[in-house]
């Protein structure tokens, strides 16, 4: 950061660094959960498009191809997206901090120090319950949003929440 950062950047002593991925992935069952969720969204959309094409148009060939490609794309995204997401979305909890990574095109890493954690919540939707999964949400005093760890085994999630709560209670102050 010395000198003129506009042109070149770093002083020679600075070795290139990177953020390492957090250690843990979501539970493998989360892939199924995301897939079902995606299909629940994509299948009706594709179906509606096909039905509309069948019922309300003169069924020109080019439009049929377009609808077919769009529908196939939607279904493919619903099937492939979760698998990609499973590889990208990671989390880690140390005694000092909570660390998550998210995002397929735009990567987002978030770190919150344990001393600044205010609340720890777990949540389970109906679909997640079917797969035995749960989310853990960690909030800090910032209004900028919480760290979410999605698709954990629900027992692990409960244990993690308990541990986080214990760790944060050990720190005094109102965490602002």
């Amino acid at each position: 950061m010395q000198g003129d950062t506009r042109t070149s950047g770093r002083a020679p002593r600075d070795a290139p660094i990177a953020l390492r991925p957090p250690r843990h992935r979501a539970d493998p069952r989360a892939v199924h959960w995301w897939t079902v969720q995606g299909l629940l969204l994509a299948a009706p959309l594709a179906g509606a498009a096909a039905a509309a094409y069948w019922a309300f148009t003169d069924r020109p060939g080019w439009l049929g191809a377009l609808v077919g490609v769009a529908g196939a794309g939607l279904l493919l995204a619903a099937l492939a997206g979760p698998r990609l997401g499973y590889r990208v979305e990671r989390w880690e909890v140390t005694d000092e901090a909570v660390y998550t990574r998210k995002g397929r095109l735009t990567h987002t890493w978030r770190v919150a120090p344990m001393s600044r954690v205010q609340t720890v919540d777990t949540a389970r939707g109906p679909l997640q319950r079917m797969f035995g999964l749960a989310d853990v949400t960690v909030t800090t005093a910032s209004a900028a949003g919480a760290l979410r760890i999605e698709g954990l085994d629900h027992e692990l999630a409960a244990e993690l929440a308990a541990r986080l709560t214990m760790l944060t209670q050990a720190t005094p102050g109102d965490a602002t």
């Binding site: 735009t106 990567h107 890493w109 770190v111 800090t140 005093a141 910032s142 965490a175």
Partner: peptide, 24 residues
């Protein structure tokens, strides 16, 4: 009270990222 670091596809190509300090 924490960091959010984001890097879009374009930023990745350009060797840039956005560092966000979160605060109360």
């Amino acid at each position: 009270v924490g960091w959010t670091i984001t890097q879009s596809y374009v930023q990745r190509r350009a060797g840039l990222l956005t560092v966000t300090a979160t605060t109360a």
